[in-house]
């Protein structure tokens, strides 16, 4: 079974993002970029399936700027077998990404797509579901447990009300939630080895991404909260809450 793990280069989750003064977006200059954390979890899951003998090959792919090769190399170092880089300088929206990934799935004969449930930059939470739909495949989003048996996957999903278990026929798209696993650390010798793993470049022009898109007209910081104050004990807390009519 061949698995595709689409990944995205995003601002590192430890960075406190800053909106540019002209409202044109978020400052990316000189900011640490990393693999979207949910995608690391997806790759880890693919690698564990390979170690169990369920999966034969793990292919990581990204759509993004030339520097996104760094992120592909780190997932190769984690253990993926090879990488595909669709080089794109423009902003790619989820439906466009899904169309590109659909073509990769078809070109590569992929049986299972494992990807993050969302990217922590645009927080769209759409691409996996859209990809599954375009392929006519089932989806199991927000996965916290994945078991593959023959031609079906049994997936525990983190839903608002608790945990839901779905059974889906393969091929399928599964999107990773936080508690699916804890990704292994990348070791230095593996980083060296990853430099020799195959990485194919594809041009954006090879893909049909002519779909309606949304336009971001402004980016601004969220409105702040009024500064609070400290109370000295429970009685003062209760009195203040009563004053505000909250209890």
């Amino acid at each position: 079974m061949k698995v595709l793990v689409p990944i995205k280069r995003a601002v590192d989750y430890n960075v406190r993002v800053r909106v540019k003064n002209d409202g044109s977006g978020v400052e990316l200059n000189g900011v640490k970029m990393s693999v979207n954390p949910f995608d690391e979890i997806a790759n880890e899951e693919a690698l564990r399936l390979k170690e169990k003998g369920v999966v034969t090959e793990v292919v990581v792919a990204t759509i993004g700027v030339a520097k996104a090769e760094d992120q592909l190399r780190s997932e190769l170092a984690r253990g993926a077998d090879r990488a595909i880089h669709v080089v794109a300088d423009q902003d790619i929206q989820p439906l466009q990404a899904a169309r590109i990934l659909k073509k990769l799935v078809e070109d590569e004969g992929i049986d299972l797509v494992l990807m993050g449930k969302q990217a922590i930059d645009d927080d769209a939470n759409q691409t996996g579901q859209m990809l599954a739909t375009l392929l006519g495949w089932p989806q199991a989003t927000f996965a916290s447990k994945v078991e593959i048996e023959g031609q079906t996957a049994r997936v525990d999903r983190e839903i608002d009300a608790g945990i839901e278990t779905l059974e889906v026929d393969l091929p399928a798209v599964i999107t990773a939630d936080l508690r699916l696993n804890e990704p292994r650390f990348i070791k230095l010798p593996d980083i060296m080895k990853a430099k020799r793993k195959p990485l194919d470049k594809r041009e954006l022009g090879d893909f049909d991404i002519d779909v309606p898109t949304l336009e971001v007209t402004e980016t601004r910081p969220p409105s702040g909260r009024e500064p609070g104050r400290m109370v000295k004990d429970v009685d003062e807390l209760i009195a203040t809450l009563k004053d505000k009519g909250l209890v």
Binding site: P94, L95, D123, A124, P212, E215, T217, R220, P222
Partner: peptide, 30 residues
């Protein structure tokens, strides 16, 4: 075959919305 606006937090017009990005650390108008 259309895009989606995730997490609409304010409405400026029928096709004009605010939505949070970066875990709400920035707001975009879409």
């Amino acid at each position: 075959g259309v895009p989606q606006v995730t997490d609409i937090m304010a409405v400026h017009g029928p096709r004009d919305f605010d939505r949070p990005i970066y875990a709400g650390n920035a707001i975009t108008r879409v």
